[in-house]
Computed example of a mutant assay.
Amino acid sequence: MESEPFEREKHVTFLEMMYRLLPHQYQTQEINRLTLAYFVVSGLDLLRALHRIDKDAVADWVLSLQARPSDSDQVNNGQFYGFYGSRSSQFSPQDDNNGASSSGISNLASTYCALAILKIIGYDLSSIDSELLLKSMRNLQQPDGSFMPIHTGAETDLRFVYCAAAICHMLGNWSGMDKERAKEYIINCQSYDGGFGLTPGAESHGGAIYCGITSLRLMGFLEEDVLSKNVSSSIVNVPLLLVWCLQRQAGDGGFQGRPNKPSDTCYAFWIASVLKILGGHKLIDQNALRGFLITCQSQYGGFSKFPGDLPDLYHSYYGFTAFSLLEEPGLNPLCVELGMTDLAAIGI
């Protein structure tokens, strides 16, 4: 029996709806509005429908969320001058001693999403004050090589190492981080089973593996298609990692994020991307994976986390990326390291 089709036009309509007005269920995600916008813009680019949005309006909105010091004396005050996650994030609910509102806090994840959006729509990133952004980003790197997402302190793990590496790569300037220290932190996150945890000693997780491997690739410490070369010279244990990733494809064809967990749409991107970097993506049962993803495709457009659930923007985007990796007709090729199309990644 012929499998169901990938409903490209319905997916475009789904993203267009999200572009115009987010449903009320996303109110709790207001502080992550830039991230949601990244899913929409990059998703439309993957679906070859980027012309459906007003690129100038998008650029103006993203640039309005950039953090800037109020005067030159504050440049070296330890604050991170990246991008705020949303309009409300630009303002702090707490007042200072004079009753005036203090500035909000920009963060690494929103900064990655902001630069990715601008790159996707063709904005010239050289117009951004990258020196200020990168100089202040170094304040977030810790002695062990990890990164905090905000300058006031928070958890440190591989997610924010990836954001820092992607930011430096997109800006073409690595002054924002100590690559050697970051490399050592990533290596220390590889576990005995071959996978990577978000922190050293943590349980191996598909998302953590993506962050670690793509960071090493962006920083130039890991060759592409390493399986076709001398894996013994790699800085990570490639054979164990390959086995861990391949074992995550479950009996229903989908990928699970950890052992003994149900298959989830998003891991078709997180884990398949790692396999592509390693050169092991041809070992995936692609027909089975496509079959699982189709069961998560909504009749109204978009993808859900599990079969039968309602679609959401996060899993929809990673459903689109997964189909791009499966070379679905009508989709643009994906640059897995940056999470955008190849054309956007190289600036065409």
Rank of each mutant, 00 (worst) to 15 (best):
F147Y: 15
S3V: 07
Y81N: 01
Q94D: 15
L331T: 00
R181D: 03
L218H: 14
N76M: 06
E131G: 10
A322S: 09
G197D: 00
E131C: 15
N107A: 07
N237R: 14
Y26P: 03
Y267S: 08
R217C: 15
S304G: 10
H11S: 12
Q79E: 10
N260L: 13
R33N: 02
M170G: 01
E7N: 13
I120S: 06
G253A: 12
N98L: 15
N173W: 04
V161N: 03
S191I: 00
S146E: 09
P311E: 03
Q25E: 12
I277P: 01
Y81A: 01
Y185E: 03
C245V: 06
Q247M: 11
Q286I: 10
R20C: 08
Q190L: 03
D144R: 00
A182N: 06
Y185R: 00
S64L: 02
A208P: 07
D285I: 07
C296M: 09
C211M: 04
V41K: 00
S70C: 11
K229E: 12
D144E: 10
Y26M: 03
M170I: 09
C266Y: 00
P93T: 13
S103E: 10
P262E: 08
S263Q: 02
P69K: 09
D124S: 06
Q249S: 10
A182L: 02
S130Y: 02
G172V: 14
L218S: 06
I53P: 14
P93S: 10
C189F: 13
I105R: 02
Y162N: 12
N97D: 15
L140D: 03
F320Q: 00
A67D: 02
E203G: 13
L227H: 01
L50G: 01
T199A: 11
T152L: 04
H315M: 14
T35Q: 05
N77M: 13
V238K: 02
E9T: 04
R20K: 13
V12E: 02
S64Q: 07
A250T: 14
G212T: 05
H169A: 08
L338V: 03
